[in-house]
Design a protein around this nucleic acid. Structure first.
Length: 314
DNA sequence: CTATAAACCTGCTGGC
DNA sequence: TGCCAGCAGGTTTATA
């Protein structure tokens, strides 16, 4: 469900709403939602920590938590809205006076996960009553709750020390919305890839943050057939693809993410990007450029939508 | 190393 | 109306 734009939306909202709040309690309702440690240990280590920063890397949501002694570390490196990149976290790591006591709470929503901020009134009957798919329930010091809901149970939370961040993301490719993501950089990432470009765009070690929707959208914008070998693109096509990737993602962010499916923002509201999707799930409907019916094929086990006229194989 | 398939889960949709 | 196969926006693991 959530790809880069949907996670970015959540990160921005959380930055406005929960930075400065303290997590008084963490309750894991489905133990396997916790990655890398026992659920009870996770609960114990999260409790009484203040949220001092919010970031995003790829499709991962990152909440920097202060020491649990009740005195939150000063957040001199609070990320500005819209720049929740690893550089901010790196700054946190180097600037903080007591990083050894800090933690990074990592949340990945996978297919069906949502992170929702819920008021005390709504939660009066309990998190399970509010949402039967609640997997982790964080109580904040102002009485609100951060609820991680996930029907399909694919989503995961993890808690690591800041110095473990580089290793955690060692296998994740570059952020496509950063200035360094040029056509040349994209070309280098695709150089040894002979598989179909659509499948390669979904490989998070090649590029971070693209999922099935935005991969289709990026290829549609760039007029590139999804089955083209990734390393066969011309310089012009590489430029078009870079622009297509950034354009599709930025459009997604601008409209709060996709409308269909289960994606919700932290206020449990759907996004409005449905009207701005040009290829994804438009099978049989006319191409917005040429009118030809959009076709659906399967590439790398994933449904793939493209215009057979605008996106041709050579 | 690259590439493909299966596995992890549950809910929803469409066809019969 | 009711049932069931098939499908779903992601990642990890196992196998070629």
């Amino acid at each position: 469900m959530p790809e880069l734009p949907e996670v970015e939306i959540i990160a921005r909202q959380l930055r406005e709403e929960v930075v400065g709040r303290r997590i008084t309690q963490a309750r894991v309702l489905w133990d396997r939602a916790v990655q890398g440690m026992e659920a009870r240990a996770f609960e114990a280590d999260v409790a009484e920590r203040a949220i001092i920063g919010v970031g995003r890397r790829a499709k991962y949501l990152l909440l920097t938590l202060g020491a649990a002694d009740g005195v939150a570390a000063t957040d001199d490196s609070a990320p500005a809205a819209g720049s929740a990149m690893p550089t901010d976290l790196a700054a946190n790591v180097t600037d903080a006076t007591n990083d050894a006591d800090e933690r990074v709470l990592i949340i990945h929503r996978r297919m069906s996960g949502n992170v929702i901020l819920v008021g005390p009134d709504e939660l009066a009957a309990g998190a399970e009553a509010f949402d039967p798919y609640t997997r982790v329930d964080f109580t904040l010091d102002d009485g609100w709750h951060l609820v991680f809901s996930d029907p399909r149970k694919f989503g995961r939370v993890a808690l690591i020390t800041p110095d473990a961040l580089p290793a955690y993301f060692a296998a994740i490719g570059p952020e496509p919305l950063e200035a360094a993501f040029t056509a040349e950089a994209l070309s280098a990432r695709l150089a040894n890839r002979r598989g179909p470009i659509k499948a390669t765009l979904l490989d998070q070690s090649v590029i971070a943050g693209l999922g099935n929707i935005y991969a289709d959208e990026a290829l549609f914008r760039a007029r590139i057939h999804p089955l083209r070998p990734a390393n066969s693109l011309t310089p012009d096509e590489l430029r078009a693809l870079r622009d297509g990737i950034q354009g599709a993602l930025e459009t997604g962010v601008a409209h709060g993410g996709v409308t269909f499916g289960r994606h919700r923002d932290i206020h449990n509201e759907a996004g409005t990007n449905l009207a701005h999707v040009e290829a994804y799930q438009r099978t049989g409907q006319p191409c917005l450029r040429c009118g030809a019916p959009i076709r659906r094929i399967v590439v790398g086990q994933r449904g793939t939508h493209y215009c057979p006229e605008c996106q041709r194989l050579p």
